[in-house]
């Protein structure tokens, strides 16, 4: 299948990185970037392909994280099973929030505001409810065994998040190449026309929301295993909603590799800002804001769009470059 090969090659190259003895700092940087890439890919399914811009994907990140942590801490469930349950809970949250918003016919900025409101309500609830550790948060007990989804070294974590990102890339590629994907893009481009062509608009949006939420919940569940801590501000805070949409928008909305590219750029910028200014609080957000404005103004299709334009320009120029061999262009 077209595109799958590229995904597997990229995954293999990234998987080889720890074999070159990179430092823990670099590995930590890559793991956090891949968490954002995963969350961004989740957002991309609904926002990039379906055109439904959510400002509240923290609702799913947090649900995945909390359900996984609570099942482990309060009910003694195995961490891997808790992780899977967190993904399921995120999907369920997506079905509920999506069902309520799409059935009410909310679109555009109204949909964005409602998702933001859901995430904020969850954040406030989580910061006062005892089961989520209220204001203190939850600490997952240290248990450095692979069976407990905890590892001495960062390398296995890196490979696991890379595997999750790879699966998300394959899912999105499969969506692109399916009837569901064609319907989803049709809904993004023109809902009325889609209806006239037999597309059940609400069902398609809801399906995208559930897939999107499940992927973001996986990012949340992984976050808990990696940092062994979660609180309301991390789980349901605006930071993750913002980074989950920033990565695909900068990398290229509605493209397979956009979120991964964007996440790396976002994280590099964030680190660069810290180096330059020390650790001024909120500075990374200001930089993100500036980058977002620049991207939307200058390259609305993100890095992937710029690359595609450049490639098209090079292909067009090739035949002109060799006027003495007019047939050369046909073999490009």
């Amino acid at each position: 299948m077209k595109g799958v090969g590229t995904i597997l090659v990229v995954a293999a190259l990234l998987a080889a990185v720890p074999l070159f003895g990179v430092s823990n700092v670099t590995l930590n940087f890559l793991v956090t970037a891949l968490i954002i890439a995963l969350a961004g890919q989740g957002w991309n399914v609904l926002g990039g392909y379906g055109g439904q811009y959510s400002f509240g994907h923290a609702a799913f990140f947090g649900t995945g994280a909390y359900v996984s942590a609570i099942l482990q801490l309060r009910y003694g469930v195995n961490a891997w099973i808790a992780f899977a349950a967190g993904i399921g809970a995120g999907a369920l949250a997506g079905a509920i929030i999506g069902g309520l918003s799409f059935r009410s016919g909310l679109r555009g900025s109204y949909f964005a505001l409602v998702t933001l409101a859901f995430a904020e309500v969850l954040r406030i609830l989580a910061s006062v409810t005892p089961i989520t550790g209220a204001g203190v948060g939850l600490l997952v007990k240290l248990d450095l065994r692979p069976e407990a989804f905890q590892f001495q070294s960062r390398v296995p974590f890196y490979w696991i998040i890379l595997a999750l990102v790879t699966v998300s890339l394959l899912i999105v590629r499969a969506i692109e190449n399916s009837r569901f994907g064609a319907y989803l893009v049709a809904v993004r481009e023109n809902e009325e026309a889609a209806k006239a062509l037999g597309v059940n608009v609400i069902a398609v949006k809801l399906g995208a929301m559930v897939i999107s939420a499940a992927i973001v919940a996986a990012a949340g569940g992984f976050y808990v295993q990696y940092f062994l801590f979660i609180d309301a501000g991390i789980a349901y805070g605006p930071w993750i909603s913002i980074e989950a949409l920033l990565a695909p928008i900068i990398g290229g909305v509605g493209t397979v590799f956009g979120p991964l590219l964007g996440a790396l750029v976002v994280k590099v910028l964030g680190e660069a800002a810290k180096l330059v200014t020390g650790d001024a609080p909120g500075l990374d957000l200001m930089i993100y804001g500036g980058v977002l404005v620049l991207v939307i103004a200058l390259a609305p299709r993100g890095i992937a769009g710029v690359v595609a334009d450049l490639r098209a320009r090079i292909v067009r120029r090739k035949p002109e470059a060799k006027p003495e061999q007019p047939t050369a262009g046909h073999h490009v």
Partner: peptide, 24 residues
């Protein structure tokens, strides 16, 4: 007219064709 403006002509028509053709 209500085209799917960002899609090609082929992709536009394929949305309709998907009603009877599940495979892309």
């Amino acid at each position: 007219v209500q085209p799917f403006a960002g899609l090609t002509v082929r992709e536009n028509i394929a949305v309709g064709a998907h009603l009877s053709q599940p495979r892309r």
